[in-house]
Write a protein that binds this DNA or RNA. Sequence first.
DNA 1: AGGTTTATGCCACTTAGTGGCAAAGTCGTC
DNA 2: GACGACTTTGCCACTAAGTGGCATAAACCT
Lengths: 229, 229
Amino acid sequence: MTPSPPPAAAPPSGLPLRERKKLRTRHALIDTALRMFTERGFDGATLDELCDAVEVSKRTFFRTFASKEDVAMAPAEDMWRAFADRLAGRDLGGRPVAAELRAVLRETVAAMPDEGWEHRMLLSRRLAAATPSMDAHGLHFCNRTSARIVADLHRRLDVDPADPRPRLAIDLVVAAWHHALETWTAQEGGHTRGALAARLDAAFDALPGALSFAAPARADSPPPAESTG
Amino acid sequence: MTPSPPPAAAPPSGLPLRERKKLRTRHALIDTALRMFTERGFDGATLDELCDAVEVSKRTFFRTFASKEDVAMAPAEDMWRAFADRLAGRDLGGRPVAAELRAVLRETVAAMPDEGWEHRMLLSRRLAAATPSMDAHGLHFCNRTSARIVADLHRRLDVDPADPRPRLAIDLVVAAWHHALETWTAQEGGHTRGALAARLDAAFDALPGALSFAAPARADSPPPAESTG
DNA sequence: AGGTTTATGCCACTTAGTGGCAAAGTCGTC
DNA sequence: GACGACTTTGCCACTAAGTGGCATAAACCT
């Protein structure tokens, strides 16, 4: 049986009741979705069943999430949102941008306010690996967030809009992140934020090598084929 | 009015009638879909309307494509398939892998057998920019193809499966490709394969700079914010 | 306490997508 | 060319995600 993550933190008590109820509903939908999808597969649990279990209408579900994939990818989307927010408050002056982006992403993971975030992320990631529509949704959200961050960077750094480097910088960091997440998900146990951050660091550090490494001169080439031209 | 691309090439006459009819149907669905989606938006043209226009049943549509997004993203997917095929036949020995991947991608674009491919690619890309589900589908297909290519590379290069560099190498090339495609789509006119390839080269050449460039020391930082910790 | 604003649930509906099965079309052999 | 075998197609019924309208309930503010 999948161990339960810690209950989602109670919404901050400074918020009005309405806001608190919405957050509570949101968390309940995420947790129940991840549990049900894990038990039966993404397609094996319908939204009707999910809404029955949480005791909200489907109409409310769609006021909270854009789609079925949205609820299932919530841990990753929350993280990308937090990353963009943290980056917006960051002084980037004087240091390499890609390394800064990496550092901010690292801090974001460490600071995710949801106590069980890493467990939810693990469940979500495993589901996404088996569910193309989830994976696609997550990739798109990440890509969209990256594009927004780039537009912001172009403004803040007063960089020529035609300069490809800001967009490519964030793409490099995203590539490192995805590799880290993939291998972190695949490891046996020890799914901690620290472990994820360490894998991010290792992947990021491998980027220069990824650009320059050469195949062995006598690599196992495929059998000579007819001309493919 | 959107200029028509050249008609899709007639299926090779060496194939049995069945195969030829299937290819003819496939091409008709792609072209009609791109035309209708461009005229009315992706969500503005239903699959019923598309199938009526091409005179096949929806059942046949779903035997040909996995989803509505699949038909709309066909130009990109065909290209990634061709890329993976070409790469499988490539001797990679002795040269930097990332540069080889770039070169193969370049050749793939130049050699796409569909005569109007670049026009179809442009239509599809413009639609995807305005249609999240299309974009997501395309990103996922690219990601899945990359994962398959990496598994193949690990085998052919006899590289440690834990080595992150093959996966990161292809991610770098994909990042360069996406940037090239984005700016090529945005340019005014001149949407040729040569122009796309040139932009791919420029983006690829910018990758080392993307890793190392630093923000100006007194960049336009956001106003001092409260602690974001 | 009461008026205003916001959130919710109910309901009807559309569209993408699925699966079964009979009929039509193609293929290969004689 | 005829015929039996194999493959493809279209029809049909259906499901589930997703959409929009509207009355009611709940929360908020004075």
